[in-house]
Structure formats: structure tokens, C-alpha cells
Design a binder for these strands. Structure first.
Lengths: 193, 193
DNA sequence: TTTAAAATGAAATGATCGTTTCAAAAATAA
DNA sequence: TTATTTTTGAAACGATCATTTCATTTTAAA
């Protein structure tokens, strides 16, 4: 009986992600989303409910893409050093390829909306938990392998790395010199050894 | 002949700063500013020209207040260690006192507007130059005093510290545990010694 | 007290905001 | 083909956006 959803939801989310990423949540209008997705206004509301709801899906979409890149890199790493360097490498690549200096969608959203939207705040809390869990995992392995020192607990180092990543991502908005970024990363990681 | 500006410009800027800080640029409406400043709409346009222009003055206002805090702290420091720790201490205090998790106005703006507004981009470039100059100064002194090592140039360490500060400020939006933040800072600074 | 300049208040500008409505078109199952 | 369900398109919703207009009030120098 039913007519089925014709558009590809992932494609639409991808287009929406680009707009939100470039203009931010408050800077993006429904008209921008209509134009970018080639969907009708009603279809967007039918399928996504509201602007905020669509944005939340966009965030998850973006997050899962990043998550996949992480998993892939981590699977290719033989030890904790390679793992953590692969993570930072991935961010440096993101920065260098970010020609229009948009920064990270999640970090931008964190600073724009965490104090305004409870749903965003809880997304950010979960995102932080995920990230820190992943980093703590790597550090724990590195400490067991005796590659990383034990001056701090894995949990403490994880928060430090999480913070450093956010700093790197913010720095990368204006500074795209690869040597500088690599050197910065090296300095960040030095404390682990 | 002329009637002179009656309102206190600094007070108005302070009120406007609070609104922009809480809601961000795109999230703040002219009505919000009218309400917060108790100025008439026309008076705002007379005195500040436009929303963007007022925001640029707000940014400078915020920056100069921070700058004064820095100068004060640095003047009280006897050596580079005290200086750099005073700087990070200041940020930790800001984070702890930021009850509504607004984060840093400048960093929020960097992520919201750098890729959209050329005037903001150039403000951010100057802001970065200032910050890095200040940090490089401290590191240079620390290296001359043989308190800091010379594994990296003062310029390289300055970028690292600048990046770490941005990370700390982003982390502080969700994480306000003072012990965690102090430990994080200690880890950041360890590489200098 | 007159005069010139600026501040003020209130209303209006046209554009755009996010969202809703609803009839028409499309598609699938019966 | 018919019946049922969803998508679609276009228009409209009231609210709000940043900004402008302009007559009135306020101020201070002349």
C-alpha cells in the first residue's frame, strides 16, 4: 500500500551535514536545507520532524563517520604508539583538507549549543564519554606494553588527550601548516613516553 | 552645542558581552541587545552602527579585560614557571566560575564565525598573534632561566600552549572538576621542564 | 533664551524565520 | 483497476529578523 521513501536518507544527511558544518546551527535556515538537500520542505518535516531533530541526526551521522575512520585506523595499528599517532594523524588530515576553515562540526556545536539545548548537552556528554573511553583504552594498552609511562592513570591521560584534540582542532581553524601541526602533536604525545 | 552621550559605553558593552557570550552571535537578536542594554534601538545603531560592529566592539572589550588580567598576573610572577602557571590558573578559575557553561566568548566566536566573516577572521588572527607573542615571551624567559628545556623553540612551545589553552577551555564547558583540570594543566606543562 | 546637534521613542520597513496546512500526485498492495 | 498510504509542491502561518525613518525630547554652547 504505502508509497515508500524515495530519497536516500544518507545522501540527504550528508548534504545537510555540509550546510550545518559550514554555517553552524543558528546560521543555517530551513531554506538552506531545502536548497541543499533538494527535498521539499514538507518532506524534511515529514522525515526529520524539526530543524533541531534533523541536526541531531546530522550530528550522529557525522559522529559515526568519524567513528568508522577511528575503527579502521585502530585496526591497522600494531601497538599503542601507532594507535594514538593514527588518531592524531587523522585529525591533522581533517584540518589540512578543511579548506574553508569550518573546524569540527561537533566541537563547533559544543561551543554554540551546549549551554542552550539540553539534547545537545547530553549528546556532547555521550560523545565525550565515547572519546575518552577510546583514548583510555589505547593508553591502558600502551602502559601494559610499557611503551607509555604510568606517571598518570590511563583515565587522566585520556582526558588530557581529549583536551589536546579539541585544542588541535581549534588551532587548525587558522593554522594549517602541516609541519607546525605535526610538531604540536609530537609535543602533546611526548608526555606519554 | 551637542548633547553628549549619556550612557556609559563600558557598561553597555558589558551588558552586550553577557548576551553574546550566553547566546552566541547568531543566537542573539537585536531585541535581546535592546532588552539587555536598556538602550533604545536607535541609540544602539547610532552608537555602534550594526549588530556585527557592536559584536566586534564586544570582542575587543572582552579581550582587553582578559589582557588586563594577564598583565596583572604576569606582573606578580617572579619567574617563568609562576607566569605560565598563573595564566593557566586564570583559565581554570574562569571555567569554574562559568556556571552556565558558556565557554570562552572568543573561542566560541572563532568556531562560529571565522569561516563566515572576514572581519572576525582577522580579529582571530590578531588575537592568536597576541596570545602566542605573550606565551613565547614567557617560554623564552623560562629557557634563559634554564627552568624550561630547549627541546623545542619558544615559538613552537608557544603554539603548543596556545593550542592547549583552547583545548582546556573547550574541555571546561562540560568538565568543571577542579582536580581534573589542575591535573590536566600539570600534564600540559610537564613537557616544558 | 535661542540654536544646533545628538539622543530617544515608537512605529514601520521588507525580508526571512521555523513550521503547518492541504490538495494533488505517486506508488504499492489488494 | 481500485483502495490506501505517503510524498510532494506551493502557499500561507504568525513571529521575528536587522535595520531605517522621523518626529520629539534633551542637552549644551552661543
Amino acid at each position: 500500500m504505502p508509497k515508500v521513501e524515495t530519497f536516500n536518507r544518507n545522501t540527504v544527511l550528508q548534504k545537510a551535514t555540509e550546510v550545518f558544518h559550514k554555517k553552524g546551527y543558528n546560521g543555517t535556515s530551513m531554506q538552506d536545507l531545502v536548497d541543499a538537500t533538494d527535498l521539499n520542505r514538507s518532506s524534511i518535516y515529514n522525515s526529520f520532524g524539526s530543524k533541531l531533530n534533523m541536526f541531531l541526526e546530522v550530528l550522529s551521522h557525522y559522529q559515526s563517520i568519524y567513528g568508522n575512520s577511528f575503527s579502521q585506523k585502530l585496526a591497522q595499528s600494531y601497538n599503542a604508539t601507532e594507535a594514538i599517532e593514527a588518531i592524531f594523524d587523522l585529525y591533522i588530515q581533517e584540518i589540512i583538507n578543511d579548506n574553508d576553515r569550518k573546524g569540527c562540526l561537533v566541537i563547533n556545536c559544543k561551543s554554540e549549543m551546549t549551554n542552550q539545548e539540553p539534547l545537545i548537552k547530553s549528546f556532547m556528554e555521550k560523545n565525550q564519554d565515547r572519546m575518552i573511553a577510546m583514548l583510555e583504552d589505547i593508553v591502558t594498552k600502551g602502559q601494559m606494553e610499557k611503551i607509555f609511562n604510568q606517571n598518570q592513570t590511563a583515565s587522566q591521560y585520556a582526558l588530557y588527550l581529549f583536551s589536546s584534540i579539541q585544542g588541535l582542532r581549534m588551532t587548525g581553524i587558522l593554522n594549517k601548516n602541516e609541519n607546525d601541526l605535526r610538531n604540536l602533536t609530537r609535543t602533546v604525545l611526548k608526555v606519554l613516553y
